[in-house]
Amino acid sequence: MRLASTFLWVVLPYSAMVLFVAGHIWRYRYDKFGWTSRSTQLLEGRWLAWGSNLFHYGALAAIGGHVLGMLIPTQLTQAVGVSEPDYHLISAVAGSAAGIACVVGFVILVARRAYFPRVRRTTTPIDVATYVLLALLIGLGLAETLAVNAFGGGYNYRDSVAIWFRGLFILDPRPQLMATAPIIYQVHAAAAWLLYALWPFSRLVHVWSIPLQYIGRPYILYRRRYPALRR
């Protein structure tokens, strides 16, 4: 039991972190050519319009929520005057909206991939692994928000899961906090680490390329053939 819990809540997270960082460095150095969103809009556009927009806007909102929930301690939200029940209400409503958009979008994306032979043919094994893990994460995340917090008794993950999570980063791993969390949170966390391990080797690298530098850039770019000789 202890061994399993050490593996799941200490070894797995740290291995995933190492793979995540080293993998990105490796991919960036040796596979810039493969670094892309691998858009399939050329092959199918109508379903993608709904699927991609709902999924991405939902996912980005949900990720924003994670950052808030995981990195900001309870004391801080209380210090700025948001009480614990208020916090739960806000997170339940906003989280549900984002989650539902994300889930609907994701279902459309997966259905599209399965349904259109043109798109299906472009799907790689890494894609399949990505979709499976994403499906787990999104599904469980939504179940936590809806079933446990909104309609169930509620579970204050910020006093267990979140402390364990932050502990990993300050080199104070406390696997026992996770071992007692509800199973749904356990699977969620494990799947998340697996996804991070897979991330650098999947199409998800496109997330880091969000082209914010485009804003305010001059429209026309010139380049010399031999940049080192710029006068």
């Binding site: 082209p211 485009y214 770019l221 010139y222 053939r225």
Partner: peptide, 9 residues
């Protein structure tokens, strides 16, 4: 948006 396209000087 990436700035991948350019015109050669």
């Amino acid at each position: 948006p990436s700035g991948a396209m350019y015109k050669r000087e």
